[in-house]
């Protein structure tokens, strides 16, 4: 007669890959909203991005509201 046993494995360890992925998202998101002064778009648009400040202007209100330094 065959028996069926259920084993619930509880593994609390947090995978390094998950920590790394979330840490990257944390860093990028924080930089975009809190600190970008044209740096990200300068990769595609060069020096003009530092004049346009597109991301800075788009995130401007949250930047102030969340307490980040702004102009």
């Amino acid at each position: 007669m065959s028996q069926s046993r259920q084993i619930n494995l509880s593994k609390e360890g947090v995978p390094i890959i998950a920590i790394a992925a979330l840490a990257i998202i944390f860093g990028i998101g924080l930089f975009v909203v809190g600190f970008d002064q044209g740096h990200i778009f300068s990769i595609a648009f060069g020096e003009q991005a530092f004049e346009d400040l597109y991301i800075h202007e788009l995130t401007h209100d949250m930047r102030h509201a969340a307490g980040f330094p702004c102009h």
């Binding site: 979330l22 840490a23 998202i25 944390f26 860093g27 990028i28 998101g29 924080l30 975009v32 909203v33 809190g34 202007e57 788009l58 995130t59 401007h60 209100d61 949250m62 930047r63 509201a65 969340a66």
Partner: peptide
């Protein structure tokens, strides 16, 4: 942009 940035910042801090 306030709402959009809220989602980005929220996701970031949430991570």
């Amino acid at each position: 942009g306030q709402v959009f940035a809220g989602v980005i910042l929220g996701t970031s801090i949430g991570a």
